[in-house]
Amino acid sequence: MRLGVELGGLRLKNPLIAASGTFGYGVEYEGILDLSLLGGVVSKGLYLEPRDGCPVPRIVETPSGLLNAIGLQGIGIRAFVRDVLPRLARYETALIVNVCGDTVEEYAEVARIADVPGVAALEVNISCPNVKKGGIAFGGDPRMTHEVVSAVRKATRLPVIPKLSPNVTDVSVFARVCEEAGADALSCINTLLGLAIDVERRVPRLAFGTGGLSGPAIRPIAVRMAWQAARAVRIPVIGIGGITSTEDALEFLVAGCRAVQVGTANFVDPGIYARILAGFESYLQRHRLESIGEVVGSLRFPDGEAPGGPGA
């Protein structure tokens, strides 16, 4: 298993995972690509109940990026477990549920319901707004982050993978908080808060107003944050942000990530997984490496000293 990786108790056949909200529930891609190619699939964000989401426009394109405010439209965790999971059972890929909540209790409840055979791990989407705290994101406050992650930790035996928000000053603080709260791994990063404006009409281009930026535009920021997180904790980090090629994925691995997720690029080309996997193989050959694990954290700085934390 040259491409196999271990993620805090979760074994993946390769380090490529489909990112939440960009791969539906997986079943949408049946017949278009072989889901067993993937190391894992993360579901769309799931709350307890189904959600309708935001009005349109929900997505606009910006230079090399995508700004979205979907509003976490989804079928709810019960329908996922009842209707979707059985359809995915035949694929050899790790199914990861993206857990959402309006409250700490809702996160825990979704986590409990998701703890069924067929689910390999839980990714905790701490970027959800906390309705009890005026809608500020759980993931923007270390104490609320700790509360949510510990509540999910207590609710399940499955590996718990908080997904860090980039909309913070020092991501390593949040990485450590999650590790203390019992996380088995970290996903890094979610979308960056953005605003695009229609200057003719002088209104936001998205119906909701602000949105989350993804795609190649955010990659250097994502690589930097994943690198910071990986240095801050002992648990493995999954790198996410703007991956469209083998080289992009390798950036995260070299920076210290054990695995990566592909998001926006799923919309562009469903053939991306086969392409990146072939690229991994030829990279290993070219660099005479036995396994992809040897790449992880192999980043060197010319003067031997890594620069310091944020702003350095």
Binding site: F23, Y29, V56, R58, I59, Q73, F267
Partner: peptide, 12 residues
């Protein structure tokens, strides 16, 4: 955005 029901940008 995607044509496959996954980006949820095309809803009516």
């Amino acid at each position: 955005g995607c044509g496959l029901g996954t980006c949820l940008g095309c809803v009516v």
